[in-house]
Every structure is written in structure tokens, then in C-alpha cells.
Design a binder for these strands. Sequence first.
DNA 1: GAAACACAGT
Length: 454
Amino acid sequence: MSNVLLLFDKMGQRDIVTWNTMITQLVKTGDVDLAYKMFVEMPERNVRSWTAMISGFVQCGKPKEAISLFTKMEETCLKPNEVTVVAILAACADSGFLDLGSKIHESSDNNGFTRNTHICNTLIDMYIKCGCLEAALDVFEGMKEQTVVTYSAMIQGLAIHGQGEKSLKLFFEMIQTGMKPNGITFIGLLNACSHMGLTNEGLGFFTTMTNDYEIVPAIEHYGCMVDLFSRAGLLHEAHDFIKEMPIKPNAAIWGALLGGCKVHKNIEMAEVAMRHLQELDPFNDGYYVVLANIYSEAKRWEDAARVRKLMKNRGLNKTRAWSSIAVKGMVHEFVAGDDSHSLSMEIFEKWNELLVQMRLKGYVPNTSVILLDVDEMEKEKFLSRHSEKLALAFGLINTRPGETIRIFKNLRVCEDCHASFKLISEIVGREIVVRDRNRFHCFKNGTCSCSDYW
DNA sequence: GAAACACAGT
């Protein structure tokens, strides 16, 4: 048992303040389950108790639990305050729950909470993570005072929305106001360079950061640099950079290199990265899948099979892909190849109809993303049953024309789905937002917000 | 006396 708990046990007098402190401390040590147990057990709860617990769930990566707790809080007579709202908005950001987030934005406008800088910063982050750049910019511009956090959030947001130039411009604007950027500001900036393939500029910012602002680069900054070189196809530069970095590279660093190897189809360097990844993070199935994919794309089926076998021997299974879409308040989930849905026939028909229109626009199925060594017909069939495609077809059938479609996916979007969605956004004249594991794609008029850089 | 925001890659 931890020291805090022992102390708590010995305390004769336990008032609401000591209970609340316990919850916060337990969250800090990562024991959110025990924190929740205490929250349930405590004799009475005030706004700070609820807020500490909601925020605790967010800090421990459980935004859905945070949201459901917030719903329970609404059933009490306690009113959420500014701090509660920050926590719940952060939960909306992390889970992509735009509906609740914008509802809270509205009520915050009404009760004056949007005068609070923390709240506005979190609103910006929430809109960015939900794929609503315009809404984020509106909040940004409406603020009476922006801080380094505000600018950092916006710089990162513009970068991941494929607006690298505006991102850099905002950075220079920030400098001109006399505000000092911090390490996180530079992460956004390096991301912007990465998105635009501006290797030299990125390198320049990395130098500026250390020389002019005396910020000691953290592992994340090295990660950004490796990502910058790797995505630009400068895999050897990336490798040299890793070899020369003063701190020990972690799995993320080698993972960034591996990602670049996939984009630029470099098997040799991918094998180098994989050797390190097997040591640093041997039980992460994602890396094996990427390497197997690289082999498959080069039609090196035996190597691909060897990697899959290695994965199996380690007791790892490829994480099953799923996508979900909310229609009329109901969440519908689809897994790849799913034909169990009651509307399967309509979904497949809809997809075939879209396929015809896509082919007219020059679409050719990119079967290289299919890992299996089967014939082309089979590959096309597997391809057309990707979970996000099923979700999209379902969404198109069940929503009003012109309505934005929002899809969640637990893994990353494949290249074929990405290409198809661009075309479909144009064909059906709709915006399609797909939220990845950790980012999103906004498809509109035949293009994607990521500028095909992901 | 207790609760808050921005962060690469996978």
C-alpha cells in the first residue's frame, strides 16, 4: 500500500478536503481505479470532488469514463464550474465527441466562461482534434488575451490541418508580440515543417530553439526531426541523426524511421529500424504489421509471412480494425469484412454504386495495401470491405444530403481508403471527417486536409 | 488546506 493510503488510513478526521486530496494523489500515481473507488465511497461530494475525478479520468487516458461521470454529475444539483468545463472539454477533445464539446461551448458563451483563457485554450484544442479548424480559429480570434499555450495549440492545429504556411506565419506573429515560445511551441512548428517537407527550415528551427531560446531538445524534438527527414525520404539523414543524438533513442524514434521507410518503400532501412524496435518494444503489433506490409508491397511474400509468424510466436495478434459512425444518436460499429450488419445488402450496393462513379473519375483499387497473397479479385473484395468504407456507405444511406459524415477508426486509414474518400467527397458533395487513432482527415471537394501527408 | 489548458511517432 502506498504511503498516502497508509496515512489516510491512520487519519482520525477525514473531511471532504482530505478525500479530494486522496483522489488527486491517486490519479497522479496512475491508480485511477482506486481513485474512483474512493470517489464512490466518500460520504459526500462537492464540485471539486467531481472535477478531480473527471479530470483524473482524462489524465489517465479514459475520456469516455470522464464523459459518463460528467453525465452523472449533471443529474445532481451541483453545477460544473470553469475547472470542470476544462476537464470535460479535454475529454471531448480526446474522444472526438464534437457534439458535447460544442454544446458546452455554447453554454460557456452564455455564462461567461469563455472569458477564461484556460477554457478557450481547451476549446481550441477540442475543435482542432475534432477536425473543425474554422471553429478553432474563431475561438482564437475572439480571445482578448492569447498565451503561449494558445499559440502553441493553434500552431500545432494549423500544421496537422495541412496549413503549414499559416502555422509558420502564426509563429512569427507570436514572436513579434514579444511572446517567448517554449518547447511545445517548437513541436508544433517542426510538425508544420514536416507536413510541408521543409527539411532545411525544420533544421533551422531546431537550431534556433537551442541557440536563441536555450531550450534543451527533448526526445520529442528529436522524434520530430527524425519524422521530418524520414517523411521527406531522407532516410539516411534520419538514420545518421538518430546515431548522433545525445540521448538514447526510444521506440518512437525508430518507429518514425520505420514509418518513413513504408512511405518511401525502403526495405533495408526498415529492417534496421525493426531490429531496434524488436528490442525496445517487442510486443507492439503495429511495427510487425508495417514491416510485413512493406514486404508485401514489394511482393516479398515469404518475408512477409516470416514477420507474421514472428508476430504470432510472440503471442501477438494484429489489432482488428474497426470504424464507427454515430447516426441519430446511435453508434454503429463496423469491422473489416463485416457482413453481419442488418443493412449489409444496402451497404454493399451503395459501395458498388460509388465504385462505378469513382472509376469514372479514374479510381483504380490500390490492392497493394492488402497483405494477403491472393488473386486480384479477392484483394479487391477485401479492400472494399475495409471498416471505414462500410461505415461511410452506411452513413451516406442514413444521413441527409449535404450533412457532414464523421467516422472514427481505431487504426490508421489505408492509402486506398484515403484515395477513395477524397473522390467520394467530391462525388457526393459532402465533407467527410475520419478520426484516426490520433488524428483526423477532413475530406472535401476531392482533397484531404492532411495534404496526403500522414 | 483540495480540482484546470498546448506536445512528435506507434
